[in-house]
C-alpha cells in the first residue's frame, strides 16, 4: 500500500499533474468529457438492462438490443477511463485517501465482475430466450445488479468532490 501511496504522490507532484490541477480550463473540460462519456456508458448499458427486465423495447430481441448498444457502451467506457485517469493524475495524492474515490473503484470492479458473469454464464445462451418479453431470472438478476452498481459509480463519483 505504501508503494501505491508513493505512486499517487509522484503523479500529484509531476509537472503534468500540477499543470492540470492549476489550469483554468483544462480540468473543467476534461471533467465535462468525463461526465458525458459516463452518460454514454451507463445510459446505453441501462437500455440493455431495462430491456431484459422487460420495461422497454419488449418487441426487439435482447441480442439485437445488445449488438446495437454494447459498442456504444465500450466507446463510453474507453473515453471515461482515459478522461478519468487524467483527472486522477491531477488529484492523485488527494484521491488516494478519498473514501468516495475508493468506493467508486470498488464499485467499478464489481460492475466488471457482474459484466463478466453476464457474458460468460447468461448472454452465451441468449439465443434461447432473446425473444421473450421478460428475460429469465438469471438475466434479470445481472441486469438489476448492473443498474445498481453503475448507479453507485455515478453517485460515488459525484461524492468525490464533497470529501
Amino acid at each position: 500500500m505504501l508503494f501505491l501511496q508513493h505512486f499517487c504522490e509522484m503523479l500529484y507532484q509531476s509537472s503534468f499533474g500540477t499543470m492540470l490541477r492549476e489550469s483554468n480550463n483544462a480540468f473543467s473540460v476534461i471533467e465535462s468529457i468525463h461526465v458525458l462519456s459516463i452518460t454514454l456508458l451507463v445510459g446505453t448499458i441501462a437500455i440493455l438492462d431495462l430491456r431484459m427486465i422487460g420495461l422497454i423495447l419488449r418487441s426487439v430481441s435482447v441480442r439485437r438490443v445488445a449488438r446495437s448498444v454494447l459498442p456504444l457502451s465500450w466507446s463510453g467506457f474507453a473515453v471515461s477511463v482515459a478522461s478519468g485517469f487524467l483527472l486522477f493524475w491531477a488529484e492523485a495524492a488527494k484521491m488516494y485517501v478519498n473514501p468516495s474515490f475508493r468506493t467508486k473503484l470498488v464499485l467499478l470492479v464489481l460492475a466488471g465482475f457482474n459484466a463478466l458473469i453476464f457474458h460468460t454464464a447468461v448472454y452465451s445462451h441468449a439465443q434461447e430466450w432473446e425473444q421473450q418479453h421478460i428475460s429469465p431470472w438469471q438475466a434479470r438478476v445481472t441486469a438489476i445488479a448492473s443498474l445498481t452498481l453503475w448507479g453507485g459509480v455515478i453517485v460515488a463519483g459525484r461524492a468525490i468532490a464533497y470529501f
Binding site: V35, G43, T44, A46, I47, L72, V155
Partner: peptide
C-alpha cells in the same frame, strides 16, 4: 446525484 442518474437514463434513451 439524482439529477446525474436521470441524465444517464435520458442520455441513453435519446441516443437510441
Amino acid at each position: 446525484m439524482v439529477h446525474l442518474l436521470g441524465l444517464a437514463l435520458l442520455g441513453g434513451s435519446v441516443l437510441i
